[in-house]
Design a protein around this nucleic acid. Structure first.
Length: 287
DNA sequence: GCACTCACCAGCTTTACATCA
DNA sequence: ACTGATGTAAAGCTGGTGAGT
């Protein structure tokens, strides 16, 4: 069975406003929708398929939490993290070799009396319903507080650690997808700029050719300079003749309420127009 | 203020499993 | 039917950070 990305409920959309891309305070413009469009389509395995799979020979990895799991949920929700978090002290802690620590570690690995004890790691495959519920929960909030984690783990019949891991991996997948979208977008920006560059180079060549014939040069319409009234933010209508004098007086004819104003040329930044603000709504900022 | 512990997270890796040629 | 390559997702490992003591 091959699952396409659509099967995972991942959908992408590129929506951006060209005028606010560079603004750090702008709204999210490049939207990435990684939420399940169809909850029922998200799981890796159909439940019927799952029932026939041979991979659960040893233990039922979807078993309800055991007493050890209950201990975990009661406070040691992330035993592996707990160990690893004390990065500098890890060796110290392991050197102590306390029974509690070993038990805790075993719990985190899913090792229990029910397992065959050969050290092999049995892989959990979430059921269709479990995946759907997790996706639904992720859609609401991509991180879980301990209370939510506990409630979800009980609802799903999983260990809190399993729910935690699922959310971590899900965030990672979301971010990876976001990166792919960003790369694709930047690639297109690059292509557009290359095309612009080619067009402008051609224009420069043409202008240089015109410069060689002064008669034509004098007949040319002067370069348009847009001006803006600083008070009302309106753009002045550019002069339609080639008269330099009229061009010079165009500032005074601005639609301004405050009398003579200074002109303000409008600058156009192709990057500002082309590159939308990079959204990361789905990604929670690091603590 | 400082040291320590704890919980959580991101990033990367490993591993089990499914699928396909 | 078997097998190796490959993709995917669950889980492990490591280091960083903030909060609490």
């Amino acid at each position: 069975m091959v699952l396409e990305k659509e099967d995972l409920g991942l959908s992408l959309s590129l929506n951006f406003r060209a005028d606010n891309w560079m603004s750090s305070s702008s709204n999210s413009s490049l939207q990435l929708n990684l939420m399940p469009s169809l909850i029922s389509s998200s799981p890796s395995w159909p439940s019927s398929d799952r029932e026939t799979r041979p991979f659960l020979k040893g233990i039922d990895v979807n078993r309800l939490p055991t007493a050890a799991d209950a201990d975990e949920e009661a406070g040691v929700s992330s035993p592996n993290s707990t160990i690893s978090s004390v990065s500098g002290k890890r060796s110290e802690r392991e050197a102590t070799g306390s029974d509690e620590l070993e038990l805790e570690r075993d719990c985190s690995r899913g090792i229990s009396d029910e397992e065959d004890g050969d050290g092999s790691r049995k892989k959990l495959r979430l059921s269709k319903d479990q995946s759907a519920i997790l996706e639904e929960s992720f859609k609401e909030h991509n991180t879980l507080n301990p209370k939510q984690k506990l409630a979800l783990s009980k609802r799903l019949g999983l260990r809190a650690r399993q729910v935690e891991v699922w959310f971590q991996n899900r965030r990672a997948r979301t971010k990876l997808k976001q990166t792919e979208v960003d790369c694709e977008f930047l690639k297109r920006c690059c292509e557009n700029l290359t095309e612009d560059n080619r067009r402008l180079q051609k224009e420069v060549q043409e202008l240089r050719a015109l410069k060689l014939s002064p008669q034509m040069y004098m007949q040319m319409t002067p370069p348009t300079t847009l001006t803006m009234c600083p008070s009302c933010e309106r753009v002045a209508v550019p002069p339609t003749t080639s008269s330099t004098a009229q061009l010079a007086t165009s500032v005074e004819s601005l639609p301004c309420h405050l009398g003579p104003v200074q002109s303000r040329p409008i600058t156009f930044n192709p990057w500002a127009a082309a590159i939308p603000h990079r959204p990361f709504n789905a990604i929670r900022p690091r603590q």
